[in-house]
Simulated assay, not measured.
Amino acid sequence: MTDDRKTQLAENLDRVEERISAACARAGRARDEVTLIVVTKTYPASDVRLLAELGVRQVAENRDQEAAPKAAECADVPLTWHFVGQLQTNKVRSVAGYAGIVQSVDRARLVTALSKEAVRAGRELGCLIQVALDAEAGERGERGGVAPDGVEALAEAVAGAQGLRLDGVMTVAPLAGPYAGRELAAFERLMEISSDLRAAHPAATMVSAGMSADLEEAVAAGATHVRVGTAVLGVRPRLR
Results as ranks from 00 to 15, higher is better:
91 K>T: 03
68 A>T: 03
168 G>K: 02
233 L>C: 08
47 D>E: 04
35 T>Y: 08
80 T>N: 14
13 L>P: 14
129 I>Y: 05
106 D>I: 04
92 V>G: 03
235 V>I: 15
104 S>L: 05
134 D>N: 14
17 E>G: 15
194 S>D: 09
46 S>Y: 00
59 V>Y: 00
20 I>V: 14
225 H>Q: 05
225 H>C: 03
82 H>M: 04
143 R>I: 00
113 A>R: 02
159 A>V: 00
180 A>K: 12
238 R>I: 10
109 R>I: 01
80 T>L: 11
208 S>I: 04
11 E>Q: 15
138 G>A: 08
174 P>Y: 12
16 V>L: 11
129 I>T: 05
228 V>L: 07
46 S>K: 08
90 N>D: 06
184 L>K: 11
152 E>T: 07
210 G>E: 12
6 K>M: 14
184 L>M: 11
110 L>T: 00
106 D>W: 03
189 R>A: 15
159 A>Q: 01
144 G>K: 06
176 A>M: 07
196 D>N: 13
73 E>L: 15
196 D>R: 12
200 A>K: 05
101 I>C: 07
132 A>D: 03
189 R>D: 11
41 K>C: 04
121 A>T: 01
9 L>S: 06
190 L>A: 13
199 A>P: 10
213 A>N: 15
146 V>G: 06
48 V>S: 09
179 Y>M: 07
132 A>S: 10
185 A>Y: 03
83 F>D: 04
143 R>P: 00
143 R>S: 13
194 S>W: 03
4 D>N: 10
186 A>M: 10
64 D>G: 09
227 R>L: 08
217 E>P: 00
222 G>Y: 11
51 L>N: 07
114 L>V: 01
137 A>S: 14
52 A>I: 03
225 H>N: 05
59 V>G: 13
232 V>F: 05
58 Q>K: 08
6 K>W: 02
218 A>T: 12
55 G>D: 13
214 D>G: 12
147 A>L: 02
153 A>S: 14
191 M>D: 14
110 L>K: 00
109 R>A: 15
68 A>Q: 07
205 T>Y: 02
214 D>I: 08
218 A>L: 08
171 T>N: 13
216 E>L: 11
188 E>M: 09
148 P>W: 01
216 E>G: 11
202 P>D: 06
144 G>L: 06
194 S>Q: 12
144 G>V: 02
198 R>T: 05
58 Q>M: 08
112 T>M: 09
90 N>Y: 04
237 P>K: 09
148 P>H: 05
37 I>F: 11
50 L>I: 03
43 Y>C: 01
46 S>I: 04
108 A>P: 10
175 L>W: 07
220 A>S: 14
103 Q>V: 01
191 M>G: 06
132 A>R: 05
43 Y>R: 08
75 A>R: 07
53 E>R: 11
214 D>Q: 11
172 V>E: 14
137 A>G: 08
197 L>W: 15
124 E>G: 02
138 G>E: 05
184 L>F: 06
158 V>D: 00
199 A>V: 11
235 V>E: 15
155 A>E: 00
72 A>D: 08
220 A>H: 11
148 P>T: 01
206 M>P: 02
71 A>W: 03
146 V>Q: 04
71 A>N: 09
178 P>L: 12
176 A>W: 07
38 V>A: 10
